[in-house]
Computed example of a mutant assay.
Amino acid sequence: MHKVRPNTLARYRACLRLYFPPPLLKKKLRQLTAKEIGLWLDQLRVTCRCCSLGRCCQRYLSPLTIQYIHALLRTALDHAVREDDLARNVVRNVQVLVGRQQRFEPFTPAEARTFLNAVQDFRLHALFDLALRTGMRRGELLGLRWSDLNLTSGTLTIRQALQYVPGTGLIISPTKTPAPNARSPCPVRPSPP
């Protein structure tokens, strides 16, 4: 049995619930065809997200979401092939457009200073400062404990992350990066005596 992170499992379940039509889910794996999967993915690409509700918002799934759905089904059928439940994975014969992640421009040093000055009196100022100086993920920042800080060596050891899992709530989970490699320079230095 494969273990996945709770957030990943929640995302898989949401994907199945939102995008996989019941007729496809009820079909036997051996009866799936590459053509059928390709047509279904093409239909997802051109169907408005809310058309099933009787009104149209003109919002469509991004190429990255379509790619994720394709990868999820491909991975599931690869597992069925490895378990000898299926002779071959027909999803591997279906091509999808490769989506591009949205690029964002990080703050310049001047913009970072302006932002930090603007939130100077906000209770999470130190968290924002640490995020800007280290580039840590949100969950890693929220999972920090005082014991993770070493003022002598000037490092933070990232051991865990705080995540929200729908239906479960907040959980502490291991980091994506293995703990021995998850060290970050600490912008906080001890004051000289």
Rank of each mutant, 00 (worst) to 15 (best):
Lys3Trp: 15
Lys3Asp: 05
Val4Thr: 04
Ala10Asn: 09
Ala10Val: 05
Arg13Lys: 15
Ala14Arg: 05
Ala14Asn: 08
Cys15Lys: 07
Leu16Val: 12
Leu16Tyr: 05
Arg17Met: 00
Leu18Arg: 13
Pro21Ala: 02
Pro21Ile: 15
Pro23Trp: 11
Lys26Asp: 07
Leu29His: 00
Leu32Ala: 05
Leu32Thr: 00
Lys35Ala: 07
Gly38Ser: 13
Gly38Leu: 01
Leu41Met: 02
Leu41Val: 06
Leu41Pro: 08
Gln43Thr: 10
Arg45Cys: 02
Thr47Tyr: 09
Cys48Leu: 00
Cys48Lys: 01
Leu53Val: 01
Gly54Arg: 09
Arg55Met: 06
Cys56Ile: 14
Cys57Met: 14
Gln58Ala: 09
Gln58Glu: 12
Arg59Gly: 02
Leu64Cys: 15
Thr65Glu: 08
Thr65Tyr: 05
Tyr68Asn: 11
Tyr68Lys: 14
Tyr68Ile: 00
Leu72Ala: 14
Leu72Lys: 01
Leu72Pro: 03
Leu73Arg: 01
Ala76Lys: 02
Leu77Gly: 04
Leu77Glu: 02
Asp78Phe: 09
Val81Thr: 09
Arg82Thr: 07
Arg88Val: 02
Arg92His: 08
Asn93Tyr: 12
Asn93Val: 04
Asn93Thr: 06
Val94Thr: 04
Gln95Thr: 10
Gln95Pro: 00
Val96Arg: 04
Arg100Ala: 11
Gln101Phe: 00
Gln101Met: 06
Arg103Gly: 11
Phe104Tyr: 14
Phe104Gly: 02
Glu105Phe: 01
Phe107Asn: 00
Thr108Gly: 05
Thr108Ser: 15
Ala112Phe: 09
Asn117Met: 08
Ala118Gln: 13
Asp121Pro: 00
Leu127Cys: 12
Leu130Phe: 10
Leu132Cys: 08
Thr134Ile: 08
Thr134Val: 07
Met136His: 09
Gly139Asn: 09
Glu140His: 06
Gly143Phe: 06
Arg145Phe: 03
Trp146Lys: 05
Asp148Pro: 00
Asp148Cys: 03
Asn150Lys: 06
Gly154Val: 14
Leu156Lys: 03
Ala161Gly: 08
Leu162Gln: 09
Leu162Thr: 07
Gln163Ile: 10
Gln163Tyr: 03
Tyr164Val: 06
Gly169Ile: 04
Ile172Ser: 07
Ser173Val: 15
Pro180Tyr: 11
Asn181Met: 10
Arg183Gly: 05
Pro185Phe: 14
Cys186Met: 06
Pro190Phe: 05
Ser191Tyr: 06
Pro192Ser: 10
